[in-house]
């Protein structure tokens, strides 16, 4: 749940930068924004640290808890988790470094346009940044301060009947895991920092795996193809076909069917007395027949209405 804080923070930070860049979204054309937008810079940095899971930011504890839990259930899951964490740390800092460090690579015009975002953006940014930093502490695991799981205490009336965590790793293992991930994360951060802080626009393209890793285009494309597009398509399908045509169609169709049958049944009322009397006599016959066969009819009706 701490995730929500820094995710929101990142989104807003990115929005703030794009705003400043007058709609430019490509971080290759940014750089050096540190001096133009200090607040955005700091908050963005905090968010990156948090999401990368650097202690003591909020992401650290939650990530650590998740990884510990994963380790408890299966080491394979844990390794994937660590790998994911490393990737996250790497690409976050790549973005950070490209955007805020180094020299400005945009056009002259954009450089003039650069400015700190209005308060509407910076205030929520700051609030979220504070939350992103401290939110971790309320979830500090028992490892650091026994019985200090503030969140649990704080929600004590709610969780009073919660069973204790079923699987607890020994503290030693937890320390070990924590240390390994932290070191790896920090290493990957440093790598990214070094690599991209002085990024130049015409720098030679990376080769091989570096190219894939470094190029956010691939990530975006994969993300686009695997998640975003199908998701959008699927929800579009639900919205336009299932909801509008199928469900609403049935609902409105019922109404239309009633109107249609109204138009048809109305025709029985022809205004001809002879016709009416014929109908009456026929119905009389039907009543007679129905009366002497009512047992079957009732059985049929009860079969319909279960």
């Amino acid at each position: 749940m701490t995730h929500a804080f820094f995710k929101a923070l990142l989104f807003l930070g990115a929005g703030s930068v794009i705003h400043a860049m007058d709609g430019q979204q490509d971080s290759r054309y940014m750089g050096g924004l540190k001096k133009f937008m200090p607040i955005t810079h700091i908050t963005f940095l905090l968010a990156c640290l948090a999401i990368a899971g650097v202690p003591p930011f909020s992401g650290f504890f939650s990530k650590d808890e998740i990884l510990a839990a994963a380790y408890a259930s299966s080491p394979v899951l844990y390794y994937f988790g660590v790998l994911g964490a490393l990737f996250t740390a790497f690409y976050m800092f790549r973005i950070y470094a490209m955007t805020f460090l180094g020299k400005f690579r945009g056009t002259q015009e954009q450089e003039h346009h650069l400015h700190e975002s209005p308060k509407a953006m910076t205030i929520p940014l700051s609030i979220l940044a504070v939350l992103a930093v401290v939110a971790g502490f309320i979830g500090i695991p028992a490892l650091f301060a026994p019985n200090a799981h503030l969140l649990e205490q704080f929600l004590a009336p709610v969780f009073s009947d919660l069973p204790a965590h079923s699987e607890h790793l020994s503290h030693g293992t937890e320390w070990m895991l924590m240390g390994v991930t932290t070191v790896l994360v920090i290493l990957s951060i440093i790598w990214a920092w070094k690599k991209f802080s002085n990024y130049e626009l015409d720098a030679t393209e990376e080769k091989g795996i570096g190219k894939v890793l470094a190029s956010k285009w691939y990530v975006d494309e994969i993300y686009d193809a695997v998640i975003a597009k199908p998701l959008l398509k699927f929800s579009g399908f639900l919205k336009n076909i299932v909801d509008k045509k199928l469900i609403d169609g049935i609902v409105n169709g019922t109404g239309r069917f009633v109107q249609y049958s109204s138009r048809q049944i109305r025709l029985v009322q022809s205004g001809q007395v002879g016709g009416y009397i014929l109908m009456m006599v026929l119905s009389l016959v039907v009543l007679f027949v129905a009366f002497w066969n009512q047992a079957y009819i009732l059985k049929f009706i009860h079969w319909i209405f279960k």
Binding site: L231, L232, F234, S235, G236, L238, K239, V242, D243
Partner: peptide, 10 residues
């Protein structure tokens, strides 16, 4: 889930 998915496209 259905309503959330539809909300995405609204």
């Amino acid at each position: 889930l259905y309503a959330s998915l539809i909300a995405i496209r609204q």
